[in-house]
Nucleic acid binder design. Structure first.
Length: 731
DNA sequence: AAAGAGGGCAAGACC
DNA sequence: TGCCCTCTTT
């Protein structure tokens, strides 16, 4: 079966492996040796691996360090030992009241159980498409119907989209009056709310501003330059990697040196200086009253932990806690939840370990696996009935996840027995692969709306050939991801003025605003900021009299003073700074007219607020997700809803009638950068599982026979399809 | 400070 | 191979 994928140039001898010129050449020597190992024996063999392909002899399996092996074994034990805690359909409560009967009829037995269980901590393992949101929303409604105060319900989610969806549907069930009284939000928005409201109790600075990821990087860059580290060593790492490492160290709760050792060995020789930057980074934020995303969680956690008064206050208010997407929580988030739930223990966490795909940003896969460890008396409910896909698609998805080393045992099933096994197909090259996909899309589009079809790939550039082909044939499509609205410079610029209006000490915003002015660069900006700090936030620029740029500074000061007027609405404040900013924008950007449209969107959003501080906080935490200027054209009645091109990550939680997953070559999916650590390969597998489980009726898995990749050639089919039983798919 | 040249690096993206 | 970042030059 696997022979079907055998690459065209398979005559390479073992003495001369094909990876000679490829990326793999950079791997350490022991890894070279390992490439020859039969991948079947290198894994702790999952129970159900069935056949031994000939080709995969050359799949790279990284060595497993003893501590990793030990940890994996522990997690396997945990996952295997949940038996006694599992509640089954038989444990569903009697439907002996009108309310109970109503909920029983609305939900399947497992969902019903999850919605009504109140006997303590619960873990709900919700498979893909199993009605997770439905269950949570009904639980919320059930609690309220049974006398729980809506105010005491806390629903924590990962994305603002999920939070809004929950709120909306809760309101639909219990009505606006009660539905709007529950707290549903992201961890960060919940933290931001508490820190602002209980500033003195939590130790958060007054009127703090929130630094997003790029702001955090800018701060690192300012420090890096101040320390002249780039001058000392031209190889000194850039702001991006440093900032990422600092954040990772906090998200994983690991000492900085260890974080560097484990995740960025290339930075090892700079550990001392990075530690120094870390120290100054903290001081910088304190001095300028800035909190980054990690701070929001850290401040909240510390306040809960160290201020009994505050903890009691929070526990008194929120007595029923539900956490969505628990597999994506990091260690700090888990601790926050544990603290709040410690007293009343009304906690339900919902998630799917098989869909944990965010380890790279600090999500701790183990939180969900170790829940039974934290709450030994917990109960576990599995939602395995799938309402999305056909059984034949689920069979393949189940097989994919069966190949994982760790995870709770589960098996999705569906009533949908519509025929149509997933298709796995190899093409000579990327062009013919793209050609095939687009032809199939064209053929399908007579029966299925284009918008119900998606192409999901591992990395954005995998979509290039398909995009080209779609354009050539005039098929409308949208690409998820790309440069976000909030990341566009003019949006950041305008928001920076407003940030200064709120927080005079926000040096990151100052830096942006100042360097916009002609004649002011990084050096001068630094001096001006220092001057503002010395004057405790007053706009005293007399000392720059005589310098060329002095008049600009005075103008800026006037604008900021005008905008600060407390009688103005956020929208009016925005207008004030905009009138100052527009001429500057025209100077620096040729396409300023198009950018103006983004500013209009910003105005629209600001119009909905009464308080500037709230507007800025919300905008930092809940930015509009897509590129608005290009996608928010007025909808054309006759225009067809476009096809979707997306990364698998961005597709999480979504579904389509037909899904194509292209470029299934080992080294692309799984990505070659993930092949060095067993945990990373595991995550790639879960990612592939997410991709497959997005499909409702048709699933296409395709690959080119080979692909030129950074000077080398990739030609092995993805290990995730190579080890599939051949009766699971067509070809 | 702004513009041009050369070198390094390359994924995924939530708040 | 191409883009982004930084360094160099004016």
């Amino acid at each position: 079966m696997v022979r079907r994928y055998v690459p065209l140039d398979d005559d390479l001898s073992p003495e001369e492996p094909p990876r000679k010129k490829s990326k793999h050449a950079e791997l350490p020597a022991e890894y070279e040796a390992d490439l020859a190992v039969d991948f079947e024996s290198a894994f702790i063999a999952p129970a159900e691996r069935r056949h031994t392909p000939a080709a995969p002899r050359r799949y790279a399996t990284p060595p497993m360090p003893p501590d990793t092996e030990e940890r994996i074994r522990r997690l396997q034990e945990l996952a295997a030992s949940i038996g006694t805690r599992i509640l089954t359909d038989a444990d569903a409560p009697a439907a002996d009241t009108e309310i109970m009967r109503r909920y029983r009829d609305l939900l399947n037995p497992a969902q019903f159980l999850a919605a009504t269980y109140t006997g303590g901590p619960v873990l709900v393992i919700a498979g893909a498409g199993s009605g997770k949101t439905r269950t949570l929303v009904h639980r919320t409604a059930w609690l309220i119907e049974n006398g729980v105060e809506p105010e005491s319900i806390l629903l924590l989610t990962f994305t603002r989209k999920a939070a809004q969806e929950m709120s909306r549907r809760a309101v639909g069930l219990v009505g606006r009056g009660e539905g709007s009284r529950i707290t549903a939000g992201t961890f960060h928005s919940f933290a931001s709310f508490l820190l602002r409201r209980y500033g003195t109790l939590t130790g958060a600075p007054p009127a703090f501003t929130i630094a997003d990821q790029s702001d955090a990087e800018d701060i690192v860059d300012l420090i890096r330059r101040e320390l002249k580290l780039d001058k000392k060593d031209r190889k000194f790492p850039r702001k991006g990697p440093i900032s990422e490492t600092l954040s990772r160290s906090r998200n994983l709760d690991l000492p900085l040196a260890e974080t560097i050792d484990r995740f960025s060995p290339a930075l090892r020789e700079f550990t001392g200086d990075i530690a120094l930057i870390a120290e100054m980074y903290v001081k910088f934020k304190t001095a300028h009253r800035i909190l980054d995303y990690d701070d929001l969680l850290d401040y909240l956690y510390r306040a809960l932990q160290q201020q009994p008064e505050f903890l009691a206050l929070v526990q008194d208010r929120w007595r029923h806690i539900m956490v969505d997407e628990f597999q994506d929580t990091n260690i700090v988030q888990k601790r926050i939840v544990d603290l709040i739930a410690a007293r009343d223990r009304n906690i339900m966490v919902v998630g799917d370990d098989a869909q944990s795909i965010y380890a790279f940003r600090g999500a701790n896969f183990e939180n969900i696996l170790r829940f039974p460890e934290t709450y030994p008396d917990c109960r576990i409910i599995r939602l395995e009935r799938n309402y999305r896909s056909t059984q034949e698609i689920l069979d393949l998805a189940n097989a994919v996840i069966d190949g994982a080393l760790i995870g709770y045992p589960k098996r999705l099933y569906s009533d949908d027995t519509a025929p149509g096994r997933p298709l796995i197909k190899t093409f000579a090259d990327q062009e013919s692969e793209a050609g095939f996909i687009v032809s199939e899309i064209v053929a399908l589009s007579s029966q299925v709306p284009l918008s119900d079809i998606a192409v999901l790939y591992r990395a954005s550039f995998h979509g290039n050939f398909i995009q080209a082909e779609l354009m050539r044939r005039g098929i409308p499509f949208v690409v998820y991801g790309g440069l976000k609205f909030v990341e566009r410079r003019h949006i950041k610029d305008i928001l920076s003025y407003l940030r200064i209006v709120v927080n005079r000490f926000d040096a990151v915003a100052w830096n942006r605003v100042l360097t916009l002015l002609p004649g002011i660069g990084g050096m001068t900006a630094g001096q001006v900021i220092a001057c503002v700090m010395e004057h405790e936030g007053r706009l005293e620029f007399k000392q720059f009299k005589g310098r060329k740029f002095h008049p600009y500074l005075e103008t800026l000061a006037t604008v900021l003073e005008t905008a600060r007027d407390g009688r103005l609405s956020p929208l009016q404040q925005l207008e004030v700074v905009k009138s100052h900013y527009l001429p500057l924008l025209k100077e620096i950007e040729a396409d300023w007219e198009e950018r103006l449209r983004d500013l209009e969107v910003l105005e629209q959003i600001a119009g909905g607020y009464e308080e500037l501080e709230k507007f800025l906080a919300d905008f930092a935490l809940e930015p509009p997700s897509r590129r608005l200027s290009t996608n928010d054209r007025p909808p054309d009645e006759n225009e067809e809803e476009p096809l979707v091109l997306s990364t698998v990550h961005s597709a999480k939680g979504l579904e389509w009638h037909t899904v194509f997953v292209p470029h299934l070559l080992d080294g692309l999916f799984p990505a070659d950068r993930s092949l060095k650590r067993i945990e990373d390969i595991e995550e790639e597998r879960r990612l592939f599982y997410v991709a497959c489980s997005r499909a409702k009726r048709r699933l296409y898995l395709t690959l080119p026979a080979q692909i030129a990749f950074w000077g080398g050639v990739l030609h092995l089919p993805s290990r995730f399809i190579a080890d599939l039983r051949d009766d699971l798919y067509e070809s």
